[in-house]
């Protein structure tokens, strides 16, 4: 409690307002409504897994889309998630544009903040792969982190829940904006980029030997030539291990995709349901939680990519130090 009486009064007032809002939320939300036998303040949330198109949406068209999780048309469609990802992109670009517009050796304001962000990420990357690779990997890792984090945090803006198109019944059925990561294609796109990034650096660091990690036929070949069953058996195991390695690299893409997709989608649903049950105050902790989740998912996506690429460029066992051959 602050000693200043004016501050104390303000704090008490704020607490009272919060409490009143919480009570109002309890009464008007779905929980209170069920007890009192009234309609809840918010309509029951609909969960769409697939993103919804926002172009050419008239009342009827959106009604059509709102009815079921029908697939999107085969051509290009501007979906709400895509729009949201563009907003995130533009925000990031604007941020860095203004941060680097009038740079000075003595940083101030936005430049200071941008430098803090860049330096923190840069230290993170360097801490894992060292200064030499740190500079090369940094842009990719930082961009993944920033893009995922900003997209996840944008979702928490109120306009994401409230802006949209009404269907024939007058209910909000198509949101104008939606967290980009709830669109499966967005995490998948980043996962593919991450995959190509990792394999590219693996190939660049080790040349064709990198592919040898996946097709380990050499000891099997020895076994055939020498008619040694032991060698043949070991060769078979080697081939199997190589196949597993090959599979694991592919599976990374899927796990990347669904980890981000699942977390952000679950967060969205959690917020929707919490808001439906108790519209005020009580869902604030969930917003805090989602802030944390957004940060952690961004960190995981960037960190795992960094980890994979660090493993891919690390000198292999028994290979000696012939990394620069390729």
């Amino acid at each position: 409690m602050p000693a200043n009486p004016a501050a104390r009064r303000l704090l008490l007032l704020a607490g009272a307002v919060l409490l009143a809002l919480l009570l109002a939320g309890l009464v008007t939300g779905a929980i209170g409504a069920a007890f009192l036998g009234r309609e809840p303040l918010l309509s029951k949330p609909e969960v769409h897994l697939a993103p919804q198109p926002v172009t050419g949406v008239s009342g009827e068209a959106s009604g059509e889309h709102g009815e079921g999780p029908a697939g999107l048309p085969s051509g290009f469609v501007l979906t709400n998630t895509l729009l949201s990802s563009w907003i995130a992109t533009v925000l990031l670009l604007l941020f860095f544009f203004f941060a680097t517009r009038r740079m000075s050796l003595v940083p101030g304001g936005l430049q200071n903040f941008a430098e803090w962000v860049v330096e923190t990420l840069h230290n993170f990357v360097q801490g894992v792969v060292g200064p030499e690779y740190g500079r090369r990997f940094f842009p990719m890792i930082a961009t993944i982190f920033l893009f995922v984090a900003v997209n996840a945090w944008l979702e928490l803006l109120p306009i994401y829940q409230s802006l949209g198109f009404k269907n024939a019944d007058g209910e909000l059925s198509t949101h104008l904006l939606r967290a980009a990561a709830t669109d499966l294609n967005m995490p998948l796109a980043i996962a593919l980029v991450s995959f190509v990034f990792v394999e590219y650096w693996g190939l660049r660091a080790h040349g064709t030997r990198y592919l040898g990690e996946f097709f380990r036929v050499s000891s099997f070949w020895h076994g055939i030539r020498r008619f040694s069953p032991g060698l043949l058996f070991q060769g078979a195991i080697d081939i199997f291990v190589g196949l597993l390695e090959f599979l694991s690299h592919g599976i990374r893409v899927i796990s990347f995709t669904f980890r981000l997709f699942g977390n952000i989608t679950a967060g969205e649903i959690l917020l929707l349901v919490a808001g439906f049950l108790v519209p005020f105050v009580a869902l604030l902790p969930f917003y805090g939680l989602e802030l944390l989740v957004g940060f952690i998912q961004a960190l995981i996506f960037a960190g795992l990519t960094l980890g994979f690429v660090a493993v891919a460029v690390a000198p292999h066992e028994g290979e000696g130090h012939s990394e620069e051959r390729g």
Partner: peptide, 14 residues
Amino acid sequence: GALGFHIPSLIIYL
């Protein structure tokens, strides 16, 4: 399709 997999969107995101 139910999950929203959509090649054009994927390309745009990429």
